[in-house]
Design a protein around this nucleic acid. Structure first.
Length: 551
RNA sequence: UGACCCAUGGUGUAAUGGUAGCACUACUGAUUUUGGUUCAGUCAGUUAAGGUUCGAAUCCUUAUGGGUCAACCA
């Protein structure tokens, strides 16, 4: 019965490998650098790498590419681990490139011994000058032909801290005229007298990406090393090093990173937004970070579903954020508890109801009978949404208007009899009558109304704060615009409503529960809430075909 | 004026020489005690030109367009 889902190009490669017996099982890795928080683009890579070893025999390691102590911190390591777990994945081994500094150092010595690496004393400017350009070959460094003994000695002294930062590098000896710039004697090691988040002051030389990543893959016997397309030119060097070092032949495969419109996914840019206070932090709910999405109320299920739907391929892309929103709505619709909250209150007095009150029942989730129901107090004075009333309504307006009837959700049908105004002419109150026989669940009135409104009983309502979020940028692709990307921030990305009126059932709201404020959207309790205050973040609004029609 | 990667509806992704499909979006309509959900339907695509073939989105050539490469970042 089940329709076979087509394979992405990596799954095809792996199935072929498994079929041919190239591998019996596979090993992948997710290799973040701990210099920032993970974002939605990383989620794609996480789902890919971990997803592959869920589908095929094998496992996935979490490996931190921590070879640049100047930008890396333990805070980032912790956040990355939390985010991967939250997304629902468990790694086999937790590893660090820094675990391999000793092996990497010995690999470098082997290269020196084979005459394939040398210590260069050129400055970074001099190296750049001799590098050539994509269309012109480079020139050999004057230090290129030192003896092996000299190189060994110099490299040892680099490690021993005898030289200042930037004064020397270890370079592979390949070909300065190579068509691939990365093969023009790439730098393997540089001197940095910097404190490393894990190895402390043990080392003052650190390997470059190209001399750490592939070697780490190899040490872990990673079979399929999956990275993004900008690393394609690195593959030649990746292979060269593995061949010369005669180590386990991990293979690199590349896919196109996923881009999403109206946001940026560059750790450098996100860091800028954080540092320059354009957002409140890495987990600001407007951020495309995993932690931001989590605080915003996204579920791991919805993010996994999103990654699954956008797929894996090799072409440039700009995915519509609307798809992410669709995924979270789809999930939240099934699990969110329905609650009634009035954002902009308009008082309604039900003139024939009297001073008493009663308890009504309402289902917690019409999509899930198991979610049960809750009690809602009703009384003769309630609040409805100000924009649920119009004095001169257009055709097909189903809400309240003079002489018109609406259903109050889970309660009665009411009819608007009178509009009360203050001295300025602002509507301050509506006088309505209710139809006693129309009680929800036992309606014998025979009246059919088109509109149903949410409401809260005025004397039972609690106060809360809601934070409404919109896209962070006003343009689809901020990174592609002229000038500073920050000039394209959306000034209305955050709207705070300090006082909204919520039904009493929200009193014990917990951060783990998801809510749908009926007709308003999906909300989650923010971590800044406490015993005295309820603060809700809007995850995403409901689809609104009335607003779209210009209603 | 080099090398490499890529090109299918508005967006994302399938079709692996044999009926261009799926999802999102948009638009209709039905249902609805959320103008939500659900259901039914509609619009919409192979960058171009040659070639190979009975047959090409798929293979070849050229062109065009987009991306990547000149960090002691990853």
């Amino acid at each position: 019965m089940s329709e076979e889902k087509s394979l992405n190009f990596l799954e095809e490669i792996i199935e072929e490998h498994l079929k041919q017996g190239t591998y019996k099982s596979i090993v992948t890795r997710f290799p973040p650098e701990p210099n920032g928080y993970l974002h939605i683009g990383h989620a794609s890579s996480i789902c890919l790498n971990f997803g592959l070893t869920k589908k095929y025999p094998g496992y996935t390691n979490l490996r931190f590419d921590d070879t640049n102590p100047e930008t890396e911190e333990t805070e980032y390591v912790d956040s990355i681990k939390e985010d991967v777990r939250w997304l629902g994945f468990e790694w086999k081994h937790e590893r660090y490139a820094s675990d391999y500094f000793g092996s990497l150092y010995r690999f470098a010595q082997q290269l020196i011994d084979k005459g394939l690496a040398y210590v260069d004393e050129s400055s970074s400017e001099e190296i750049a000058a001799l590098k050539g350009t994509p269309t012109e070959p480079g020139k050999d460094s004057p230090y290129r032909n030192r003896t092996i003994e000299e190189n060994r000695d110099l490299f040892t002294r680099m490690k021993n801290g005898e030289f200042p930062d930037g004064s020397r590098t270890l370079r592979a000896k390949i070909d300065m005229a190579h068509i691939n710039m990365l093969m023009r004697d790439p730098i393997l090691y540089r001197i940095k007298h910097a404190h490393h988040h894990r190895t402390g002051d043990e080392w003052c030389i650190y390997p470059m990406y190209d001399f750490a990543h592939g070697q780490s893959d190899s040490i872990e016997e990673v079979t399929h090393s999956i990275c993004t397309m900008e690393f394609i030119p690195h593959r030649e060097l990746y292979d060269w090093l593995i061949e010369k070092l005669e180590i386990y032949p991990s293979q690199q495969y590349e896919f196109a990173r996923r881009n999403i419109n109206y946001t940026v996914t560059s750790k450098r840019k996100l860091l800028q937004l954080v540092n320059e206070k354009f957002v409140t932090g890495w987990d600001d709910p407007r951020m495309p970070t995993i932690s931001g999405l989590r605080r915003r109320g996204y579920t791991p299920e919805s993010i996994r579903d999103f990654c699954d739907r956008i797929g894996v391929a090799k072409r440039d892309n700009l995915v519509d954020v609307g798809l992410l929103e669709f995924c979270v709505r789809e999930h939240l619709n099934k699990i969110a508890l329905r609650r009634m909250v009035v954002f902009d209150p308009l008082k309604v007095v039900i003139t024939n109801y009297g001073q008493e009150e009663e308890i009504l029942m309402s289902e917690n989730n019409p999509e899930d009978e198991g979610a049960g129901s809750r009690e809602i107090p009703f009384s003769g004075e309630i609040y409805i949404e100000r924009d649920d009333f119009m004095e001169n309504p257009p055709k097909k307006y189903f809400r309240l208007a003079p002489g018109q009837m609406v259903r109050l959700k889970s309660a009665y049908i009411i009819k608007c009899e009178e509009v009360i105004r203050d001295a300025e002419g602002t509507i301050t109150e509506l006088r309505c009558t209710y139809i006693p026989e129309s009680k929800s669940g036992q309606d014998s009135s025979g009246i059919n109304v088109k509109g149903t409104l949410h409401w809260v009983s005025a004397r039972h309502a609690l106060l809360a704060e809601v934070r409404l979020y919109d896209r962070l940028f006003r343009v689809e692709d901020p990174a592609d615009e002229e000038g500073d990307f920050k000039d394209y921030l959306n000034p209305d990305s955050l709207q705070v409503i300090n006082k909204v009126y919520v039904e009493p059932a929200l009193h014990g709201a917990t951060p783990g529960e998801r809510y749908q404020f009926i007709r308003k959207g999906y909300f989650v309790l923010d971590r800044e809430s406490n015993g005295n205050s309820l603060i809700f973040n809007r995850t995403v609004g409901l689809k609104d075909s009335w607003a779209k029609k210009g209603g």
